[in-house]
């Protein structure tokens, strides 16, 4: 029995890259990419029909990635669990709205998780404006923490190497935005550069990571 996923969007696109593609050999290895993305898409299609078994399997496959990312951004363990719960209930609720033409299932899930985590820290911050940026600066560089943790798996090693390949400003912008949950204005404040610079560093930093990791989308 096959469950069709809607592939087949082929919007012809041309665009100019701001940097020449830089794809190291290891990034071309298909095994270098997390496996099972097709399976995730099939599972989502089943979840959209209310299949609880499929939902359980989906959870098995992505819970650690979602919880890890949410914890990284939110920090507080109890709140991280709450946000993770919100994320999965949201996946359950909106599975039918997943559009394979607009990216992979994994990307959709992680984007949803990141969005929720960031919403949580921002609303907490709105509620407590007193926590000023200087205070957060003292928490240390998120990048150091990432660097500490990214030892165990190949994927972590690959991501770490790719982060190492960025310029300092690109790396700090990406890490503060993604793992830190900061807006580009906050990052500009933290790094003492104009916010326009942060926006472009975020873009070219992520583009370089994309090329380094050999990301398919």
């Amino acid at each position: 029995m096959t469950i069709g996923t809607e592939q087949g969007t082929s919007v012809a696109l041309t665009w100019t890259r701001r940097e020449p593609p830089h794809r190291p050999a290891q990034a071309q290895d298909p095994a270098a990419r997390p496996a099972g993305d097709d399976a995730l898409e099939r599972l989502l299609a089943l979840v959209a029909r209310g299949d609880e078994q499929a939902f359980a399997e989906l959870y098995q496959r992505v819970a650690a990635a979602v919880f890890g990312l949410v914890s990284k951004v939110v920090r507080n363990p109890a709140q991280s669990e709450e946000v993770t719960q919100e994320v999965f209930v949201e996946l359950w609720r909106t599975a039918a709205r997943f559009d394979p033409g607009r990216g992979t299932a994994r990307s959709w899930i992680m984007t949803c998780a990141h969005r929720r985590a960031v919403d949580r820290v921002r609303s907490a911050e709105r509620a407590a404006r007193r926590d000023d940026l200087a205070g957060r600066r003292d928490q240390g560089r998120p990048y150091d923490e990432v660097a500490e943790q990214v030892e165990t798996t190949l994927e972590r090693e690959r991501v770490r190497r790719s982060l190492d390949a960025l310029t300092d400003l690109q790396r700090e912008a990406v890490v503060l935005a993604y793992y830190g949950g900061h807006t580009h204005r906050e990052i500009a404040e933290l790094l003492g550069v104009p916010s326009g610079t942060v926006k472009t560093r975020l873009r070219d930093g992520l583009i370089r990571l994309r090329d380094h990791l050999g990301v398919d989308a």
Binding site: V11, L13, T14, W15, P34, A63, A64, A65, V66, F67, G68, L69, S71, K72, E81, T84, R102, G103, T104, R106, S107, I109, M110, T111, A113, H114, V146, Q149, V150, T153, E155, R156, R158, V159, R160, V174, Y178, Y179, R203, L206, I207, L209, R210, L213, V215, D216, A217
Partner: peptide, 24 residues
């Protein structure tokens, strides 16, 4: 063009996210 780039960059940030994994 931007939509395609966003798609690719979201797939990239998804990899960053997965690298922080930890079991709930």
């Amino acid at each position: 063009a931007c939509a395609q780039e966003v798609r690719e960059l979201e797939a990239t940030t998804a990899r960053l996210g997965a690298a922080a994994d930890s079991p709930p």
